[in-house]
Amino acid sequence: MNNPDETVWLALRNINFSRAGRSILSDISLRFCSRELILLTGHNGSGKTTLLRILAGLLNPDSATIEFNGNKLTGGWRRNLGILRESCCYLHQQPYLFDGSVFDNVAYGLRRRGIDGSEIERMVAEALEATALGHLRRRHCGELSSGEKQRVAMVRAWVLTPRLLLLDEPLANMDKPSRSKCLALINQMQEDRISVVLTSHDPQQGELHISRHLHLYQGRMERKNLPAGVDRSPLPESRTRPVTYAGDKTE
């Protein structure tokens, strides 16, 4: 078994969502502990992306209740959106990088937090170096490969150390070296006490320390046993381990 913290910091219950009279999600309940890596699988149109967008506070469900740090939040969904947006960060399947340099993109969220400019410089430089993206620091985002864009977007989310990171098919259409680098980064996030939800069509995510496997079928949640081949070994205790890549350094 993996070793996520046992304390549930966020629980969402009875999430229902429908659009144009069609039910997309029915009575979904989820709970999150720190350091958890949840694999969410499902066919196309099963509601994976919708669920992630609801968790990120980007979409309003028809009904749902939120428990945060053990307290049930009152006042309706919209009133508590701020808490979800502060705690969760969502990455699109094809992440959007703002028009600007890699540095500008990674610094975007830090600037929104009002962090001092020199501190932002240091944090961005450290994060880029730790993920072997330091050489792209001044590069315009329009000049990056799709694998580099995906990693820059992940670093942009990682530097904010959200409590929950929602990755929508992050490994789709990636070649082996890029995939390997992304997997290493996801493992690093987990070590940094970030809960990660990862959606995929493919339940085989061999290089990840998956804690739970959830499956969406026609808008309903099914808990699955971890598939064969999934790494069930405990997470390494070290939280400062540098990210290492199985693949080569060039893309």
Partner: peptide, 15 residues
Amino acid sequence: TDRRVWETALTLGAT
């Protein structure tokens, strides 16, 4: 404009 601009800004903590 790509809708992801709005969503990315919000999810990265922009008001």
